[in-house]
Design a protein around this nucleic acid. Structure first.
Lengths: 342, 342
DNA sequence: AGCGTTTAGGTTAACGATAACACAGATTAT
DNA sequence: ATAATCTGTGTTATCGTTAACCTAAACGCT
């Protein structure tokens, strides 16, 4: 008979076996001090009774929850989803579960989500910060909570981080287009200047300088979302009067409507206008868009991120880990077409 | 002065305020028995000290964790990811966090994931079952764990469920194609006969009967994954000799490579061959594929699912809830082109 | 004034598991 | 042969919070 309501606890197993809860607990954790036979007998009884350990209790006492939280900005964003899959796989094989906390595009939620994570005593946090937000970092540090910053760096913060080489990415974008002979550029920036945007622009400008393309040939269009800025009329207006022939978009999701707008106006991509973007969101579907995309493997970011976090969980005081993953530039179709054009 | 290591607990706040932990606990939970002034003072002190409640402890004592688990087959699948976003939003506004447990395409993990969920004392489970698996259901029932079956039904199980009207979906697919005048069909089925596949096929056959299309005009190609079955050669071989002009694919992810294969072989879609599929995965990108897709709003499945679960959490013994969401058939481009063709 | 009823808070015992310590009997070492 | 160690287990305290129960003062009412 169960103790209180219905849940089967160590106590129930103990009663059934004639041992104390302590011994059962040990058996379940495969404590080497128990003789093989006893352990087996206990584990079998536990299985027979349908015992499922209560991690809340265990975590409360032991301080380990075997749950890792990931904090992302938006679950509708494929970029994150692809990583979640990989992260989950890596975490699972290390014995962790994944708690997803999502800002729903509202950055003010970040602090609250971090509190939630701490509140649930997760063992670590995979954090995709959306803004330059030192306060959240401070909270985690104060609570001695292991964490890794993903995709971005944060000003004045030294902490474990995994991101791709955005500066080089921007450079490669510029170089690629410059070598194709383009002289006038539209650079679609975003509204929030995240670290990756800053780095990409810096790299891009470095390339421009290297190829002697003057500043005034690069028109930066900042602070707009894809939908509202890149409507057909707008992008065509922007392109034609000044003979821009190249577009750089800070991420594929922004490039996508731009390319659509161009095509609908009878402008071919990449024949008339070359487009370079970041993330390679559509990389797995090479027929979809004639984009050249700059990216680091999402899978690598995810698995490196997990690796770094697990290391930090294991040793809270190990030296700071920073991984900057190489980016590559690729799109079969676009590259081929552009080369032909050249 | 903290008690043990460093975490700030109720006790610390109590010491600081001169009340007992009980009173602090009450203040934090906004217990109406406390005078406004005391509560405010306590909450301010707690905030000042950086107190973050320990949900492990709270959950252990109170039996509520305010975490809901979702069990999915594959996080790389967009269909799930889209729902996760919506679910998370709905759950967040109800005060819950979302724990994602993923089978990594390995159905044998299902039982283990359910155990994990129970182990973590989640308040409920959103379950996308992958197979006809009664045992997992039994576990949840035994543990009085609220759950909702999503997307699928399970034989011999009566439980809360939310899914779309797959039978009608299949019917609409058949009707649509039959009315366009198609007489010979390739029906791409999947390897595992999930309930949605069964229902879709049943509905499709009903339409075939209604339009007097004999069984032998429908060739069912089962048990293959998209990649391996629908290579260029294969699909073209299948199409040409018998003059199939219509393809039904049990889900968009399978249709996608098929369409690509067709196009690469110089067969136009939808001009030469009409393709109907399910899920409307690419619906938000109408230029991507000339597919006609049958689907129910993912957002609806997600939010209905959450709604049903929350109700069940609130009252474990309320009557069984089953929601079958209407499907619609749509693709602007394909429909227009097909109509012109007709 | 006397008696019930709030009001504001304290006391105590859980929730389920685990860590630290204790300890008897068996085994080994010297 | 006796001390030292190991083996297998029980005892107790504790993780941080909450539920159930209790009390003392203040208040209202006839």
């Amino acid at each position: 008979m169960g103790n209180n309501g219905n849940r089967i606890t160590l106590k129930d197993v103990a009663n059934e076996c004639g041992y104390t809860v302590n011994t059962i607990s040990r058996a379940m954790r495969n404590d080497p001090h128990l003789p093989e036979s006893t352990r087996q007998m206990i584990q079998e009884t536990a299985a027979r009774l349908g015992y499922i350990p209560n991690k809340m209790a265990s975590s409360l006492r032991s301080g380990k929850s075997h749950v890792v939280a990931v904090i992302v900005n938006d679950l509708h964003n494929q970029h994150f989803c692809q990583m979640l899959g990989k992260m989950d796989a890596e975490l699972q094989s290390a014995g962790y579960s994944l708690l997803i906390l999502c800002m729903q595009l509202n950055e003010n939620l970040a602090q609250q989500l971090i509190n939630t994570a701490i509140s649930l005593s997760v063992d670590g946090i995979l954090y995709f910060p959306h803004m330059q937000s030192e306060k959240q970092i401070e909270t985690m540090v104060n609570h001695r909570m292991p964490f890794v910053l993903l995709d971005r760096w944060i000003e004045n913060v030294t902490a474990d981080s995994v991101r791709c080489d955005d500066e080089n990415g921007g450079y490669l974008a510029g170089k690629h287009l410059a070598e194709l002979g383009h002289r006038k550029y539209l650079y679609l920036s975003g509204l929030n200047l995240s670290s990756s945007q800053i780095d990409r622009l810096i790299g891009f400008k470095r390339a421009m300088k290297e190829y002697n393309i003057p500043d005034e040939n690069v028109r930066i269009i900042p602070g707009e979302t894809a939908e509202d800025a890149l409507s057909r009329g707008r992008i065509v207006d922007l392109l034609y009067p000044l003979d821009y022939t190249a577009i750089v978009s800070f991420r594929d999701e922004m490039a996508y409507p731009a390319v659509n707008a161009l095509r609908s106006s009878g402008i071919s991509v990449p024949e008339d206008v070359s487009v370079v973007s970041f993330d390679n969101l559509y990389g797995s579907n090479p027929n979809l868009l004639p984009l050249t995309s700059i990216y680091a493997s999402e899978s690598d970011v995810a698995s490196e991120g997990v690796k770094v976090l697990l290391k930090r969980i294991e040793d809270l005081y190990c030296p700071v880990q920073t991984k900057i993953l190489p980016v590559c530039i690729y799109n079969e179709n676009a590259t081929a077409a552009e080369a032909k054009n050249k």
